[in-house]
């Protein structure tokens, strides 16, 4: 019993809390400098955060229990006391939110082409499945040709029935029944027309970097990349994102040897070999959305609010420690 009490005292003390804070800070510093991608996912670090949470829960609970008697002792300090409590409880809520996400949160990524429908329950587990259809994808540009916004026009469907439609853009995610969709990225598929090995002319959507093998030649063609604003001075990188001078960069191989590279315009007939042609009529954009469900988000949200109000009450609005507060400092509970 004595030992348990001691452990409890130690775990719930503010000193331990401060030591833990120093540990978290130093670990984060070392981690971000040397192992930024893995360190924060290690068990060691998570354990540290969990111990800190436990410490703060106990510490905050103790303060809450003692609040009444403390307030009786120092009536003039209630504002700061409430602030302190809110601030610490807020941090605990935030940590709890993170913990809930670590256990129950899900996230994934979906790429959708215009007109296609994706079943969201294929990406993350859903109680009531629904699908997302991309109706259109539009990039807006600034005057200088840099992108100013990416917009995915989507429709939410449940068993084929339209439930909602929305525009998802950067900073404007869609929230559908707790599942959030964020505009994350986009890409292009390249429409490619050529005669295939059965002799018929096909129009295929090719992913950047993939090969095609046209009929009538031993040569293969790598559909390397779509460049929206081609400028020879910029090489293989687009000058701006706006399609002011769109080109398809392709390369031709024979016996795995590179024999030529070209930059084709849309609809330009490119001769690959004698009487063998490839045409790139257009590109088709696809959007990449991040999908996330985080049942801990409300906890973190309210925690953040409590924390902000608490910190302001405890430190800004409260009077500074003058003569009057001396008495409180003399009965510090350094548990």
């Amino acid at each position: 019993m004595e030992i348990l009490k001691k452990v409890y005292r130690y775990l719930s003390s503010m000193k331990t809390g401060l030591v833990l804070l120093v540990l978290v800070g130093s670990a984060a510093a070392v981690g971000s400098a040397f192992l930024p991608d893995v360190f924060f996912n290690t068990w060691l670090f998570k354990l540290l955060l969990i111990i800190l949470s436990v410490n703060m829960v106990l510490c905050t609970a103790n303060r809450f229990i003692l609040l009444k008697s403390r307030l009786k002792k120092n009536r003039n300090k209630w504002f700061r006391e409430i602030g302190n409590l809110l601030l610490h409880a807020g941090i605990v809520f935030i940590l709890a939110g993170l913990l809930v996400y670590a256990f129950y949160g899900q996230n994934g990524q979906i790429a959708i082409r215009t007109g296609d429908t994706v079943d969201v329950s294929q990406i993350i587990a859903l109680k009531e499945p629904f699908s997302l259809r991309l109706d259109d994808f539009k990039v807006e540009y600034n005057e200088d040709g840099s992108p100013s916004q990416y917009n995915s026009y989507v429709t939410v469907l449940e068993s084929g029935i339209t439930k909602d439609d929305a525009v998802i853009s950067v900073n404007h995610p869609l929230n559908y029944r707790g599942v959030k969709f964020y505009q994350q990225s986009y890409g292009y598929l390249i429409k490619t027309k050529y005669t295939n090995d059965t002799g018929s002319e096909v129009e295929e959507l090719i992913k950047e970097g993939n090969f095609i093998k046209p009929e009538g030649t031993e040569r293969t063609v790598k559909v390397f990349r779509y460049i929206p604003n081609f400028d020879p001075n910029h090489g293989m990188v687009t000058k701006t994102m706006r399609p002011d001078n769109p080109r398809i960069i392709f390369s031709v191989y024979e016996d795995k040897q590179l024999i030529g590279v070209g930059a084709a315009q849309f609809d330009e007939r490119v001769e690959i070999d004698e009487n063998v042609y490839v045409v790139f009529p257009a590109v088709e954009p696809y959007t990449i959305l991040k999908v996330k469900s985080d049942p801990g988000l409300p906890l973190a949200f309210w925690g953040g609010g409590m924390f902000m109000i608490g910190v302001t009450m405890a430190l800004l609005a409260a009077p500074s420690q003058g003569k009057k507060t001396e008495s409180i400092d003399s009965n510090r509970e350094m548990r």
């Binding site: 800070g25 930024p36 994350q184 991040k290």
Partner: peptide, 18 residues
């Protein structure tokens, strides 16, 4: 709102926390 996660241990966030 922008990236879909409120805390991702990106260096700026981490050092602000420190």
């Amino acid at each position: 709102q922008a990236w879909g996660s409120y805390w991702s241990w990106d260096p700026k966030e981490t050092w602000a926390l420190i």
